[in-house]
């Protein structure tokens, strides 16, 4: 009951809210027991190795994949409700467009199929890239095609923009151009963005929120600024060839032993006292440690976790 009031509160505080979400394919669970919240207005990076369930999650958020279990809400509205359709835009991995349509016709399609279409914004994005409006989409370069796909996504005026590895097939120049465009448009409109990517540096630059998946489960969710300080990189001398017992009081995400030296990624459960050298890891180091150790306990920063009390009432 209380859960309802927060999730459907004025303006929809949570752009995306998953409870026990799962999807099973014939070969097994692609995503299971996935619960998290993405506050509106954030730029969220979706991180995980191939097959972690990123595309499945984005597919469920865009109604392309039917959840096997659990619930997913966009701004408080269940994704099964067609009311959510005008609220999100999706840019898939291979950014499919009708190849025989001209750029202008592609934008007209956006106008014909979306109630809140913003033709001026879409045309501005296309013009800024010097994409000829009467060229067939099939004749454009990869970067130009991506720009048209972006224009189609932003012309929809979405509240939530979902991107599945949007820059993976672009050259560095086009990638930079698209990231700038994405950030500028998203910030200007206050659009919530969730983008999956393998480029950790790209994520570090653009995202202020992170959702880390591995083997179909949530490993970390929350503020990028809070996730990193929750970890410490500890270097020291081993005891009898293994980690010191004092360290195992804390949550050890990953550890490596080199001779008499050890290095461990630790989530401190209190002050780290010992004869160790403690340093703050980079975001990349934290992510890599979590991706290498899918069995480590999941970490949610406050707000990112779905309150179990609420989960029970729904």
């Amino acid at each position: 009951m209380t859960g309802k009031s927060t999730s459907t509160g004025p303006g929809g505080t949570w752009a995306l809210e998953a409870r026990g979400l799962g999807r099973r394919y014939r070969r097994g669970w692609a995503l299971r027991d996935c619960s998290f919240r993405l506050p509106a207005g954030r730029i969220c990076g979706l991180v995980g190795p191939n097959g972690a369930g990123k595309s499945t999650l984005l597919g469920m958020a865009t109604r392309q994949v039917e959840p096997t279990e659990g619930e997913l809400r966009l701004f408080g509205v269940p994704v099964s409700d067609r009311e959510v359709m005008p609220r999100f835009a999706f840019l898939g991995q291979d950014k499919p467009l009708f190849k025989r349509f001209t750029v202008a016709e592609t934008l007209r399609m956006g106008a014909e199929l979306n109630p809140d279409w913003d033709m001026a914004a879409a045309e501005r994005i296309v013009r800024a890239g010097n994409v000829p409006p009467h060229a067939a989409v099939g004749t454009l370069s990869g970067g130009q095609r991506t720009r048209v796909a972006f224009a189609l996504a932003f012309g929809k005026r979405p509240d939530l923009l979902l991107l599945d590895e949007p820059m993976s097939d672009l050259d560095p120049l086009a990638r930079h151009e698209m990231s700038t465009l994405l950030m500028a448009e998203a910030v200007e409109r206050g659009t919530t963005v969730m983008m999956s990517s393998h480029m950790l540096t790209e994520l570090e630059d653009m995202c202020d929120y992170l959702l880390v998946l591995a083997e179909g489960r949530v490993r970390m969710a929350g503020d990028a600024d809070a996730l990193v300080p929750a970890h410490a990189l500890v270097t020291g001398v081993t005891q009898d060839g293994s980690l010191p017992a004092a360290l195992t009081r804390h949550t050890v995400i990953e550890s490596r032993v080199h001779g008499r030296q050890f290095q461990a990624m630790v989530r401190p459960q209190g002050p780290l006292t010992g004869d160790w050298r403690v340093s703050e890891p980079s975001l990349e180091e934290v992510l890599l440690a979590h991706l290498r150790s899918p069995d480590a306990p999941a970490l949610y920063t406050p707000g990112a976790a779905v309150d179990p009390q609420e989960a029970r009432t729904v």
Partner: peptide, 14 residues
């Protein structure tokens, strides 16, 4: 095959 089904059905039409 060409993914345009996904393109159309992620606009505002079911």
């Amino acid at each position: 095959e060409q993914g345009t089904a996904q393109l159309v059905t992620t606009q505002s039409v079911t």
